[in-house]
């Protein structure tokens, strides 16, 4: 059984009140969810509380999830709402994409590999929140553009162009850090 099918089955069991299944979901998603929350909650000091709050919401509402295949998107939407609710600094709300979000070819899109990870991790924190967000979902959760669109509430075209520009910004930031 592939991973997606496994998760779907676990979600269904969780919806039926299976505690072990719910714990399994936690084990699967917590590490990457933690990375996402830490990146989005720049100060990081609220991350643990926020994560507990997210899982509490998941526990309370999982029975309402209709599309069990979309658990990850649903989970990250809950996380995103919690993070945004918890933002204390106004610039996090007002950050508007500055790029023209037109479809892009992707032909000159920077590519990153595992060797870049440490530098990439440091550079991510310097990006604008909406760039950081799509890259985190793409790199860490390995979400499709469609899923990222589901999490962020943007169109797929916007996600595609946002990732394109985010990668360019990331490459520039990494080069800047390298001097």
């Amino acid at each position: 059984m592939d991973f997606d099918k496994q998760v779907e089955e676990i979600v269904l069991r969780s919806q039926n009140g299976d505690r072990a299944a719910f714990e399994a979901l936690f084990e699967i998603y917590q590490p990457r969810l933690k990375y996402y929350v830490r990146r989005m909650d720049g100060r990081g000091t609220n991350a643990d509380d926020m994560l507990q709050d997210i899982w509490l919401t998941v526990f309370k509402k999982i029975h309402k999830l209709k599309d069990t295949k979309a658990f990850a998107v649903w989970l990250y939407r809950i996380a995103r709402n919690k993070v945004y609710s918890g933002f204390k600094r106004k610039e996090r709300f007002v950050s508007l994409p500055q790029e023209n979000e037109l479809p892009v070819s992707g032909s000159d899109e920077p590519v990153f590999n595992a060797d870049d990870a440490k530098k990439l991790h440091r550079a991510l924190d310097e990006l604008k929140p909406y760039h950081k967000e799509v890259l985190t979902l793409s790199f860490v959760e390995r979400m499709s553009y469609e899923s990222i669109a589901g999490v962020t509430g943007c169109s797929i075209g916007t996600v595609r162009s946002r990732i394109f520009y985010a990668k360019q910004s990331l490459r520039k930031e990494m080069e800047r850090q390298n001097g």
Binding site: R32, A117, H121
Partner: peptide, 10 residues
Amino acid sequence: KLSEELLKAD
């Protein structure tokens, strides 16, 4: 691998 390395970096 990239995903895992990013987590480790954090």
